[in-house]
Amino acid sequence: MTGPVLAARPDQDLDSGSLLPDLRKPPITKMQLVKYAGASGDYNLIHTDDETARTVGLDGVIAHGMLSMAFLGEYLCWLAGPESVRRISVRFVEMVRPADALTCRGRVKERTSVNTGRRLQLEVWAENQRAVRVTVGEAEVEIA
């Protein structure tokens, strides 16, 4: 099953308040932060160099907030398909560190009918292994 998870769901499973399936991401590694720095062009050393991170009062490197947003972007693609993402908007509320394992979760806020199918307003968030929400936001997707 490779199609978008939500496309096959009947309306009653996508009513306001419906919880969406989770997407669990593997634990973040320092290597991943180096790769993300290179792929994104964000070379701020607080994400890749412990010494720099300590000079600004951190215990060590922290993940790019945008990496957690990218996880939520993948979550939307998984739920609705990469052609279907209309909007993603997040706030970075807690720091993410190497070894943290994030899970993307979501809930339907509103479902409306449009010409091409159904438009969903979603509440989405990434939480860590302690169930603390680190990145929170909302999104809009369109599905068949």
Binding site: P26, K35, S40, M66, L67, F71, G73, E74, C77, V85
Partner: peptide
């Protein structure tokens, strides 16, 4: 690859991830 995003169209490089 850096994000470990498994969306097939993104893995192939056809469609860019939302961020």
């Amino acid at each position: 690859d850096a994000v470990q995003d498994q969306t097939p169209a993104c893995v192939r490089g056809d469609i860019a991830p939302p961020t």
